[in-house]
Nucleic acid binder design. Structure first.
Lengths: 194, 194
DNA sequence: CCTACCGATCGGTAGG
DNA sequence: CCTACCGATCGGTAGG
């Protein structure tokens, strides 16, 4: 009944729904199931969020803001390699269902209404993609990285992490800590024997 | 009326449904919409496929078999680098909705029944993942690639391609031909300036 | 009896 | 925030 209870409920909805949307996708999850998981009526969800898309966008935005805070405390200075390592470690330091938001955003982007898609794409680039691309662009400018298209390089770097954002592969890939070193070694030095 | 008409209809269902499932995901597409796209009744779909999951599995298997044929004509011999290049080019030579099957499989694996998931995972590894992993494992054994876990290396290589399998990014990533050279350069030599 | 479907409708559930 | 519902659509199946 108190305002803090309301805040808590909204947070609980976001936390439960994040977990469920990551596991099931946008269309694989119903509002009824979210309500049951939270222990609230469906109407309760619609009190806090206009519709399903509004709840979904709140989840993406909420988790991207958390991600933004994590990646900006790390890797502000140092070599490009150190900054990319700090970024990667920050991403994998997040709970699995929070880092999987990157994959979920790519995956469900096309299922949003055009207006929501345009708005979210702006936030997505401002809070996350742009930060990654800026680090790589500076590395190219300083000569630490080879000349290449920063946008393509960004998606190749993030792409390397994608399989670790799928629940289906998490099991057969082993602990991500081991994979981080390999991803960075390949991204900077290549998999070829020198 | 003739047998060839039946074959054609089944093929037409698979082709249309492939395109639609790639664009919308498993739960984002109804049997009614598939039927309308093909120009057949829903009952017609159920004559050829037991249920929605059966149709979806047929699509994954069908396209993976096509992929298997494409990647085995290429890259049978030569250096590891040449074989990986042939593999990558074969993947990107496929129509966008056919290569996106790799991403769709990872994405929807968890939405299948347990029995279907186990069966499909076997086919998936036999027809595709195993072929990629074998090339990398041989490269590691011959010393062309650095010592590393072949399974992790496989997912890192395939992961680099993942963003190109999402309709949402295809537009901002430019023509894949340009990206293939960069992916291979990074995977073998690294993005670092030497 | 068959193969290859169709028009209509089933019991449940979707978002709102 | 809930109970009680709606128009529509869901995956799947009946008889012919």
């Amino acid at each position: 009944m108190t305002p803090s209870d309301t805040v808590d409920l909204r947070e609980r909805i976001l936390r439960e729904a994040t977990r469920l949307f990551v596991a099931r996708g946008y269309h694989g999850l119903s509002m009824r199931e979210i309500a049951e998981a939270v222990g609230v009526s469906k109407a309760g969800l619609y009190y806090h969020f206009k519709d399903k898309e509004d709840l979904f966008l709140a989840i993406l935005t909420d988790n991207l803001e958390r991600m933004e805070r994590e990646i900006q405390t790390d890797g502000q200075a140092g070599t490009t390699r150190a900054r990319v390592r700090a970024l990667t470690e920050a991403i994998f330091r997040q709970a699995p269902e929070q880092r999987a938001i990157i994959r979920l955003a790519s995956q469900e982007m096309g299922h949003l209404s055009q207006a929501a898609r345009i708005r979210f794409n702006e936030v997505y680039h401002q809070k996350f993609i742009g930060r990654v691309q800026a680090i790589l662009a500076e590395g190219i400018a300083s000569g630490e990285l080879r000349p290449m298209d920063p946008s393509q390089a960004t998606w190749i770097l993030l792409g390397m992490m994608y399989p670790f954002f799928y629940p289906a592969h998490s099991s057969e890939l082993g602990p991500p800590e081991d994979a981080i070193d390999l991803m960075l070694a390949i991204f900077f030095d290549g998999a070829g024997q020198t």
